[in-house]
Design a protein around this nucleic acid. Sequence first.
DNA 1: GCTTGACCCTGAAGTAACTTCAGGGTGTTG
DNA 2: CAACACCCTGAAGTTACTTCAGGGTCAAGC
Lengths: 143, 143
Amino acid sequence: MKIGELASMAQCTVETVRYYEKEGLLPVPARTTANYRSYGKPHVERLCFIRNCRALDMTHEEIRTLLDLLDLPSEDCSGVNQLLDAHIGHVDVRIAELSQLKEKLVELRLACRTEKSVDQCGILRGLAVVETAPRDHRETHLG
Amino acid sequence: MKIGELASMAQCTVETVRYYEKEGLLPVPARTTANYRSYGKPHVERLCFIRNCRALDMTHEEIRTLLDLLDLPSEDCSGVNQLLDAHIGHVDVRIAELSQLKEKLVELRLACRTEKSVDQCGILRGLAVVETAPRDHRETHLG
DNA sequence: GCTTGACCCTGAAGTAACTTCAGGGTGTTG
DNA sequence: CAACACCCTGAAGTTACTTCAGGGTCAAGC
């Protein structure tokens, strides 16, 4: 099959497929005489694997690790478990961060219920406060 | 004060300060004879405002809007309220997305409790499944 | 035979919000 | 006057793609 069909089977764009090939996540396929990429079932499976991982917010680095483990036959899968546990940790951290964030935003929003003039706006006043607590470093790759 | 001092007061790096200047979020400061940037209290306040907004995951575009509203004297602040409401919406959406994500990850993780060989690993099998549901488009700028 | 339109190709540049790097100037302390 | 902390600029790197410019392939219809 050609790239367009492959892309639609994995629900992504043809540009994304070519990008994955360039990144080394997808193996380079054979070409037709017209220089079109020619794919088979294994490519569909691998691309779906990648897209599922991306839907779970894994980085290319994490996916590469999983694909490597997948390609290594009869290795035990404890590495897979470790990676997934770590990734679940990332998601947990990000959810906690965003929950805190939302609290602050709602609190800020309550500072201005009426349509005052800007220089009396509680929100803008709140944002101008100099914070003293040091900002901590990211512990997750999730944005 | 020089750029290093300003940066430490707002808890960011000097590179970030220079970047904000290039982006037009911070006004260009005066220079000393040695061509060093020279800042005052207004710069500290504006930089802290920006950093607080960033800590709330606002984009530069959103921050620019708030700064513009801040600079427009005696305008009513309903624009501020709208922006904050929209932003709270973004955060809500992202939290919901991540919660779903975590459920899927935990479910996947349960598929492999033991250290089997890779080709029997429930996690890798789960990831290889071809999904049929179409992926929906992002409704938030939060990663 | 020729055109139209859907599909394919490559390589470069753009996106967001920074960070890192290369290469060099300034200013204070010992 | 040498060492070191701090400042400067401009360019390139980061992540996971998307967009663009410019051009080739192929089947259908006139």
